[in-house]
């Protein structure tokens, strides 16, 4: 019996991105390539113009919604749990719990297993399947919140901040900054779970993906466009005490000033640090993240049992240090094309 190949001999960092040699494909490449496996629909992972795309059916639907004809010349769906042989590699997609359709990419080659996490979280999310840890030789983990100060509080308590504010300021609109894919729908679903059954108003940029979620079977309740067009004072009255969702860039902008005395809120893991929230003009920060926090990153590393950890996508240095203290061989994967915070925190 021959020893399994060393992982770094078959999964490598090339200028185009993380490359799986025996399969001839990249995972989440930041540039257009011939063959790509895509973990989920966020723009820093799913780029347009690839020749051949392999992803979950939900992720492919999201890419088509975003990129239309540029979503990939050939698209191949692989449902979570199923295995597909690509070249000499077995590829399996396993839920990552990040957004609808998000998946870890499990790669088996000649007795060696590498799991690329994509983005993931461990806290429950009514809009997507939960993360499943997969034992492996190398776990390639994200590190968006890879500092020990990032410890997300329970979601219920964060949501309660919004509900309390709605009760305290019933005459004010509550504009919540959310990322269009994932956070938006998760927040709506959480509000519905908490019994909030009023219409929720959406900035135009959020509608398409909400519709897509509904088509994929995620019920979101009554949603209405947050337009004041055609109406004067009365048209604005409906926003009093209402939840209005908008992309983060719109909440402290002219767009939200049309609403009655808006309370500017945001739902993001970055809201954990007060100064960050204040810089963005947020007066009601909710620490609701679709990424693993520090404790979840550590717990996941331990659960996978992987002796080797590759850290990418965020603050690598702290997590590398901590994984080392846990007895793992850990290193940072220097992938290009990712800026801090351009991802859906």
């Amino acid at each position: 019996m021959t020893a399994a190949p060393k992982p770094e001999s078959w999964v490598r960092v090339l200028p185009e991105g993380l490359y799986v040699d025996p399969g001839g494909f990249f995972i989440d490449p930041p540039r257009a390539v011939d063959r790509a496996v895509i973990s989920h629909g966020h723009a820093d992972h799913a780029r347009p113009h690839h020749g051949h795309v392999l992803a979950t059916p939900e992720t492919l639907a999201i890419m088509r919604q975003r990129y239309g004809a540029n979503a990939g010349a050939a698209q191949q769906a692989l449902a979570c749990g199923e295995t597909l042989r690509v070249g000499a590699v077995d590829v399996r997609l396993v839920p990552a719990g990040h957004v609808l359709g998000s998946a870890q990419v499990v790669l088996d080659y000649d007795g060696s297993r590498v799991v690329v996490s994509g983005d993931y979280k461990r806290s429950p999310d009514p809009t997507c399947a939960p993360f499943e840890p997969v034992p492996c030789d190398v776990f390639v983990t994200e590190a968006t919140f890879g500092l020990p100060v990032f410890r997300h509080p329970p979601v219920a308590a964060e949501l309660d901040k919004l509900l309390r504010s709605l009760a305290l300021f019933p005459e004010r609109a509550h504009v919540v900054g959310v990322y269009a894919l994932g956070k938006c729908q998760r927040l709506i679903a959480l509000l519905r779970e908490a019994g909030h059954d009023r219409p929720i108003y959406l900035h135009g940029a959020l509608k398409g993906l909400c519709d897509l979620y509904e088509r994929q079977g995620v019920a979101l309740g009554p949603l209405e466009p947050a337009t004041v067009a055609g109406g004067g004072r009365e048209a604005r009255e409906k926003f009093r005490g209402a939840v209005v969702l908008a992309p983060p860039s719109a909440i402290a902008d002219r767009w939200s000033r049309r609403l009655p005395d808006p309370v500017v809120a945001a739902a993001s893991g970055w809201m954990r640090v007060r100064q960050r929230a204040r810089q963005r003009g947020v007066e009601l920060p909710m620490v609701i993240s679709d990424h693993a926090d520090w404790d979840e990153l550590i717990a996941t590393i331990e659960e996978t049992g992987a002796p080797e950890i590759w850290v990418t996508h965020g603050r690598e240095e702290a997590l590398v240090l901590q994984a080392g203290k846990l007895g793992r061989r850990a290193r940072a994967l220097a992938l290009v094309g990712r800026e801090e915070e351009d991802d859906a925190g």
Binding site: L147, P148, V149, A318, L321, Q322
Partner: peptide, 15 residues
Amino acid sequence: VDPALFAWSYDYVGD
């Protein structure tokens, strides 16, 4: 807390 982890964190948070 590990001093390096604390230093990186303090540096990021600022307070």
